[in-house]
Design a binder for these strands. Structure first.
Lengths: 113, 113
DNA sequence: GTCTTGTATCGAGAACTGTCAATACAGTTG
DNA sequence: CAACTGTATTGACAGTTCTCGATACAAGAC
C-alpha cells in the first residue's frame, strides 16, 4: 500500500463484519468438498427428504467412518439435521440455512445478472 | 450398509453428477476462508466496482504476499477478474459466477422457505 | 539505462483436512 | 444378561492450506 495507495484507491471498505465473514466462510468451507456437496444435493432434492446414514456410504462412495466424519461437519455447520428413529439415524437438510446462503448472493452485483 | 440397508433406506440417488459436484465444491472451497469472503464482499457491493490490489491489504488485514495468494485463488475459481490499468491492477467480481452459485440454492428445498 | 513502486512467485513452517482401519458406543433382538 | 448391527470416535498418515519473509517480475518516472 504505502502512501501512494491514496492515489489509486477509492474507499472500498468491506461491507461485512468479521463475525459474519467467519460464519459465512465456515458454511462455505463445509460445502467445499465434493463428497459433502453430493450428500447435501441428495438431501436437498426436497426439504422433507430424509436419508438414512447407512445410505450415504453408497452416495458418497466412501467408507463408513469417512461418511460419518463428513456428516458431522455438515451437522456442525448447521446444514443438515439428524434424527434417530429406532435403529437408524435419518438426516435431512436445514432449509433455513440454505436460504441464508442464497440470501448471501442476493446482492446488487448478482441481481443484475 | 450391508444387506440390511435395504430394509431402512429408499432410493436416494444423488441428483448431481461428479463433475458438477467437483465444480461446485471448488467454488465453495474458494469462499471457505474469512479473508476471501471479506474480499469478495467488498467487490460484490455492485457488479461494476473495481478495487485496486493494493487496497486488499487493508481490507484483508494480511500481508501483501498473502493477499496476492488469496486473489489468485479467487481468480482461479472464476469469482473475480483482474485488469491491469497502468501501474495498478484492478479486481472486480464476476457476476455470472455468483449467479451460478445463487442458482445452486434455487432448489425445491430452499424455495419453500 | 537506473530507480522506485506495485504485484506475483518462491520457500518454509505451522496448522488443518480427507481418508481409512480399529475400536468404542448405542440401540434392538433373543 | 449376551449377541448383533448401525453409528460415532480414535489414531495415524498423506496431502493440502494459510501465513509471511525474501525475492523476482512489471511498469512508470527520471
Amino acid at each position: 500500500m504505502s502512501e501512494r495507495a491514496a492515489t489509486c484507491c477509492g474507499p472500498g471498505g468491506s461491507p461485512i463484519d468479521d463475525r459474519a465473514a467467519d460464519a459465512l466462510a465456515g458454511v462455505f468451507k463445509a460445502l467445499g468438498d465434493p463428497v459433502r456437496v453430493r450428500m447435501v444435493a441428495a438431501l436437498a432434492q426436497d426439504a422433507t427428504r430424509e436419508i438414512c446414514a447407512c445410505d450415504f456410504v453408497a452416495i458418497a462412495g466412501k467408507s463408513q467412518p469417512t461418511v460419518s466424519h463428513h456428516l458431522k461437519i455438515l451437522r456442525e455447520a448447521g446444514l443438515v439435521a439428524s434424527r434417530r428413529r429406532g435403529t437408524w439415524i435419518w438426516y435431512s437438510v436445514v432449509p433455513e440455512r440454505l436460504g441464508e446462503l442464497r440470501a448471501a448472493f442476493d446482492l446488487e452485483a448478482v441481481s443484475n445478472v
